[in-house]
């Protein structure tokens, strides 16, 4: 046995993986949201396309993308393993269980919210990631950059897609509302002087990120940005 023993196979170790990958994905969302928010400059997507071009060509970002997928898959597989184990831990269910009396609904529904996000992610990756990496962006903008902004404008003409994206951001918001502070608790970062800051930052982060993301398809659909 290695010196680390069952560090990652124990119940706490598995949760460490959930927490670490979760915080990593939280950091990723800041970058993703920040670059995408460049569309709000309303310059025909010129600045946004510069950002997209940088993300598509910088080798550190390209390597980071691989780490991102590994982190995401680890988060999903670990969640599945933990959920299956948790179901085995209570083979006979309660006839009456008053969950709302002692916990928030979204803290008990992380699996459901995560599954909705995974379904959304398949749609989302097909819409943009596959286009920019594999099938190719058809046009270039005035600066000669691939016009990802044009792709975005075209995709968000479809009202069904806009509704799906906005609903997915509700899932994201509630998933983050529990996940943000929960990751800190799991990793043992619980301290009376910082707990308030962590909880507050978690709420602000979840709400701001979700609103910004949801505002993008809405703004494009209603032509609020040019």
């Amino acid at each position: 046995m290695s010196g680390f023993g069952n560090a990652f196979s124990s119940s706490i170790g598995k949760k460490f993986i959930m927490g670490i990958t979760g915080l990593f994905l939280i950091l990723f969302l800041i970058v993703h949201c920040g670059i995408n928010a460049l569309i709000f400059i309303s310059d025909g997507g010129l600045t946004f396309n510069v950002g997209a071009h940088f993300m598509a060509t910088n080798w550190i970002i390209r390597a980071g993308e691989i780490v991102l997928f590994i982190g995401l898959l680890a988060h999903i597989f670990q969640a599945l393993r933990l959920t299956l184990q948790n179901q085995k831990a209570r083979p006979v269910k309660y006839a009456v269980n008053d969950g709302k009396a002692n916990s928030k609904w979204y803290s008990r529904s992380m699996g459901l919210l995560g599954t909705l996000l995974l379904i959304f992610l398949v749609v989302h990756l097909k819409d943009f990631w596959v286009v920019s990496r594999f099938t190719g962006i058809p046009t270039v903008d005035a600066n000669g950059h691939e016009d990802l902004y044009a792709v975005m404008k075209e995709k968000f003409q479809d009202p069904v897609r806009v509704v799906v994206y906005v609903l997915a951001m509700f899932s994201l918001c509630y998933h983050l509302l529990h996940g943000f502070a929960s990751a800190f608790q799991t990793l043992g970062w619980n301290h009376s002087k910082y707990n308030g800051i962590i909880k507050g930052a978690g709420v602000w982060y979840s709400v701001i990120i979700s609103i910004l993301f949801a505002a993008m398809p809405i703004a494009v659909y209603f032509g609020l940005i040019q």
């Binding site: 124990s10 933990l82 184990q85 948790n86 831990a89 002692n102 928030k104 803290s107 929960s182």
Partner: peptide
Amino acid sequence: VAQMDAEGFGNCTNTGACEA
């Protein structure tokens, strides 16, 4: 913790129901 796992208890998801 190893004994807790061996007994077949589930994993914590920080819902806080236990504390409540």
